[in-house]
């Protein structure tokens, strides 16, 4: 079984994003970038499926600038077999990403795609569902458990109120939620080995897909700051303050 894992290079989750003074976006110059945490979980899941003998090949794909090669090397160091970078200097919207991925899927014919539920920069939570729609494949989003077998996948999904379990026919799209697994750290020998694994590069434009943005960013602003609070002495003091504030 062949597994395709789309991974995105994003601002590191420990870094607080700062809005640029000219309101055109978020300042990413000299900011630490990493693999999107949900994509790490997706890679981990794919690699575990390979270790279990269910998957036979894990292919990581990223759409982004040349630096996204580092993100792909991380995926390779975690255990992916090979990688594809679809190079572009724009930050394509989820619909464009889904179309580019659909084009790659046309070439690669994976049995299943495991990807993140959300990229922590745009917070869209859309690409997996869109890709499933474009391919007319079933989708199993927000996965918290995955059992893959020939022809189908049983997926436990995090939903409001608890867990829903569904069974989807392969090929299918699975998007990973936080509690699917705990991603491994790549070991030094594996990081070195990853340097020799194949990484193909393609220009996004060569895939013949319409990636024109549908949304124009008018401006990016800072959210309103909360007014300064106070420290209270004790619980009684807290209750008095809450009464005054009218919330009790």
């Amino acid at each position: 079984m062949k597994v395709l894992v789309p991974v995105k290079r994003v601002i590191d989750y420990n870094v607080k994003a700062r809005v640029k003074a000219d309101q055109t976006g978020v300042d990413l110059a000299n900011v630490k970038m990493s693999m999107n945490p949900f994509c790490e979980i997706a890679v981990e899941e794919a690699v575990r499926q390979k270790e279990k003998g269910v998957a036979t090949e894990v292919v990581a794909v990223s759409i982004g600038p040349a630096q996204a090669q580092e993100t792909l090397r991380t995926a390779l160091a975690m255990g992916a077999d090979r990688a594809i970078l679809i190079q572009t200097d724009q930050d394509p919207e989820p619909l464009a990403v889904a179309k580019l991925l659909a084009a790659i899927i046309g070439e690669e014919s994976p049995d299943v795609v495991i990807m993140g539920k959300q990229a922590i920069d745009g917070d869209n939570n859309a690409t997996g569902q869109m890709l499933a729609a474009l391919l007319d494949w079933p989708q199993a989003t927000f996965a918290n458990s995955v059992e893959l077998s020939a022809g189908n996948a049983k997926v436990g999904r995090e939903v409001d109120g608890g867990i829903q379990t569904i069974d989807v026919t392969l090929p299918a799209i699975i998007t990973a939620d936080l509690r699917l697994n705990e991603p491994r750290y790549a070991s030094l020998p594996n990081i070195l080995k990853a340097k020799k694994k194949p990484l193909d590069m393609k220009e996004a434009a060569s895939l013949g897909v319409d990636t024109a943005p549908r949304l124009k960013v008018v401006k990016v602003t800072e959210p309103p700051k909360r007014g300064g609070g106070i420290k209270v002495e004790n619980a009684a003091d807290l209750v008095t303050n809450l009464k005054t504030a009218g919330v009790l």
Partner: peptide, 11 residues
Amino acid sequence: IYAGNALETVQ
């Protein structure tokens, strides 16, 4: 966007 650290106005 960015965990609520920025607000994006889109058309």
